[in-house]
Design a protein around this nucleic acid. Structure first.
Length: 479
RNA sequence: GGGGCCGUGGUCUAGCUUGGUAGGAUGCCGGCCUUGGGAGCCGGAGGUCCCGGGUUCAAAUCCCGGCGGCCCCA
C-alpha cells in the first residue's frame, strides 16, 4: 500500500486496485496485515457496516420464508467427495484437516467450501414425506476456498467471512423453478437497497455450475471495467439430491427424488457498494446502511469553547434516539475531522460553531455532493429526513449513470470488438451454442451470461448467424 | 501458465551497487499555543532491517531456499 497522508487516497480513476486497497484500510473496514494469504481482519467499523448489509439480506430471507440454521464448519472427506465427481479441480481448492494433535486421522476433515454436501447428508433424515417439503434454510458462515490466483481483499479471498448460503428442497421441478425466480427477486431487492446496479443473466450451458440444470447470476461492473459476480441462484433439479439419496414419499406412497436449489452471496456485495460509490475522498455510504449516519463536529472558538460544546451535545441528544449519530468532541482540529469522516462515508455532518450557537442554527454537510446548507435547529429533524431521501436518490441516480457509462449494446461483432475490454458489452444472440462459442473465440473473452428471451420479437439479428436473436448476451472481462 | 519488481519502528521510505554507528517523514505519548478544510513549536517513546540457511572477522547490504505483496503478458 502506498501511504500518503492518513486520509489521502490514490485517485480511483488512476489505479482502481490501489484505491480499493487503501480505502478499505483507511476507512477502517479491514486490516490487511494478517499473516495468512487471502485472509483479513474485519475492523469494528467494517464489521458493523457488513452487519447492516447482511441485515437487509436477513430481513428479505425471513420475509420469504427462509429459516436460519447452523451446520458445522468441518465436513468428513467421505461426505464431501461424493460431490467431486461433478466438480473437476474442486478438490484442489479444499483446506484439509489431516491431524488432530499429534495424531494423523483416518478420515480427513475438510473446512467447508460450501455446505451442500453436509446439509444433504443430514437432511436425508429430515425429509421423508411430501409434507416435509418445501424446506427453505440458510446460514451466514465463513467458507474456505484455496484460491490459487492472486488474492484481493474482499474480492478474491481464501476465507469468505460472510457467506450467505440458501438451500431449498422441493417436491417437484416446477417448484424448484419458481423458487429460483424468488431467489432472483430477493437478490434484486437486496442490491436495489445497496444502490448497486446489476444485470441478471442466465449462464450459458457450457459455463453452468457443474451438476446444475441452470443458474442465474447477478453481475455488476467494477470501476476498472471488469464484471463482478454478485450472487448466484442455482437449480440443481434432482441431480444433486440423487447423489445423496434425498428422497421423499408422495401422496400415493411412491418414492420420489427431491429437487433442490442453492443461492449465495458474500462480502463481495459490500465490495461492489464501496467500489461503485466511493470517490477520491473515501467511502460514500447510503444512509440506511452507514454505521454512523450523522456526525456532529463542534468548532470551538476563543471564549466560546464551552457554549459551542454544550450546543453540540444538545444537537447530539436530540438525534441519538432516532439515528446512528456520533459526537466528535476529540481534540483534533475541525479540518482533520472533516477528512476523517468523509473517508468513512458518513452521509451527513453537522457543523456546530459560534455562528450556529448564536443564531441557533446548524450547518449540514452532505457527503455525496459535498454541499453545505444552513437550517434552524427546530427544522433539523425534518431536514435530515429529506436529506437522507435526497442522498439516496442521488446515489441511485449516480449508480444508474455509472452502469450505463460502462455498458454498450452492440449490434455487430465489430461493435463488440471495439468496446470489449473497456466496457461490458451486450449483443443479440440466437441461443445456439456454436454461435456463442464463435463470439467467445472472435472476441477473446467468455460470455458472462444472457438475459433470457429479452430480445424475442424485437427483430434483432444474432451477431454470428444473422438469424432472429432471442437473448441479449453479455461479454467482457471479469474477476 | 510465463516474465518482472519489491519486503527497513504503526505507516511511507533513505541506506543495499562498493559489507563495518540503521537516517528521515508521518503517526503515537506529554506540554504550550490554537481550532470554520489535513496547524505550529518544545520534549519523549518506539526497530526480530519478512523468515530460515550459507559466505565473511563482520550481513539490512552478497548467495540459496521459503513466505508475503505488487505489476505486466497469456
Amino acid at each position: 500500500m502506498s501511504e500518503r497522508e492518513a486520509f489521502e487516497l490514490t485517485p480511483k480513476g488512476e489505479n482502481f486496485s490501489r484505491w480499493f486497497d487503501e480505502v478499505l484500510f483507511k476507512a477502517e473496514i479491514l486490516d490487511e496485515r494478517y499473516p495468512v494469504k487471502g485472509m483479513y481482519v474485519w475492523l469494528p467499523f467494517g464489521y458493523e457496516l457488513m452487519e447492516n448489509v447482511m441485515n437487509v439480506m436477513e430481513r428479505l430471507m425471513r420475509q420469504t420464508g427462509h429459516k436460519r440454521v447452523y451446520f458445522p464448519g468441518v465436513v468428513p472427506e467421505g461426505v464431501l467427495s461424493r460431490e467431486f465427481r461433478f466438480i473437476k479441480g474442486f478438490e484442489d481448492s479444499i483446506y484439509w484437516i489431516t491431524r488432530l494433535g499429534k495424531q494423523e486421522i483416518k478420515e480427513k476433515l475438510a473446512l467447508r467450501p460450501t455446505s451442500e454436501a453436509i446439509m444433504y447428508e443430514v437432511l436425508n433424515r429430515w425429509i421423508t414425506s411430501y409434507k416435509d417439503l418445501p424446506l427453505r434454510i440458510y446460514q451466514i458462515v465463513p467458507v474456505y476456498r484455496y484460491e490459487t490466483k492472486a488474492t484481493r481483499p474482499m474480492l478474491r479471498v481464501r476465507e469468505i467471512v460472510f457467506f450467505k448460503e440458501g438451500h431449498t428442497f422441493h417436491a417437484t421441478y416446477e417448484d424448484a423453478v419458481k423458487q429460483v425466480e424468488l431467489e432472483v427477486w430477493i437478490y434484486k431487492k437486496f442490491y436495489d437497497e445497496l444502490l448497486v446496479p446489476y444485470v441478471v443473466v442466465k449462464t450459458t450451458p457450457w459455463d453452468t455450475f457443474p451438476g446444475a440444470k441452470y443458474n442465474y447470476d447477478l453481475i455488476t461492473i467494477m470501476p476498472d471495467g471488469k464484471a463482478l459476480e454478485l450472487g448466484s441462484a442455482i437449480n440443481f433439479g434432482d441431480l444433486f439430491a440423487r447423489t445423496y439419496g434425498l428422497e421423499y414419499m408422495d401422496e400415493n406412497g411412491e418414492k420420489k427424488n427431491v429437487n433442490t436449489t442453492s443461492f449465495g452471496i458474500s462480502e463481495r456485495s459490500l465490495a461492489a457498494l464501496i467500489a461503485i460509490h466511493g470517490d477520491d475522498r473515501g467511502l460514500k455510504l447510503p444512509p440506511k446502511l452507514a454505521p454512523i449516519q450523522i456526525v456532529v463536529v463542534p468548532i470551538p472558538s476563543k471564549g466560546y469553547e464551552e457554549k459551542v460544546l454544550e450546543y453540540a451535545k444538545e444537537v447530539y441528544n436530540s438525534l441519538a434516539g432516532d439515528y446512528r449519530v456520533e459526537l466528535d468532541d476529540t481534540d483534533e482540529r475541525p479540518g482533520y475531522k472533516f477528512f476523517k469522516w468523509e473517508m468513512k462515508g458518513v452521509p451527513i455532518r453537522i457543523e456546530v460553531g459560534r455562528k450556529e450557537y448564536e443564531e441557533r442554527t446548524l450547518t449540514l454537510f452532505r457527503r455525496d455532493t459535498m454541499e453545505r446548507s444552513l437550517v434552524p435547529f427546530d427544522d433539523l429533524k425534518s431536514r435530515i429526513e429529506s436529506l437522507f431521501r435526497e442522498i439516496e436518490e442521488e446515489m441511485r441516480r449516480q449508480a444508474r449513470e455509472y452502469f450505463e457509462k460502462r455498458t454498450v449494446h452492440a449490434k455487430t461483432l465489430e461493435e463488440i470488438r471495439e468496446n470489449v475490454g473497456e466496457k461490458i458489452v451486450s449483443f443479440p444472440w440466437c441461443g445456439l451454442e456454436e454461435c456463442g462459442h464463435e463470439v467467445e473465440e472472435e472476441v477473446g473473452y467468455g460470455i458472462l451470461g444472457f438475459e433470457e428471451n429479452a430480445l424475442e420479437g424485437k427483430g434483432e439479428k444474432c451477431v454470428i448467424c444473422g438469424r432472429e436473436a432471442k437473448h441479449r448476451a453479455w461479454i467482457g472481462r471479469s474477476y
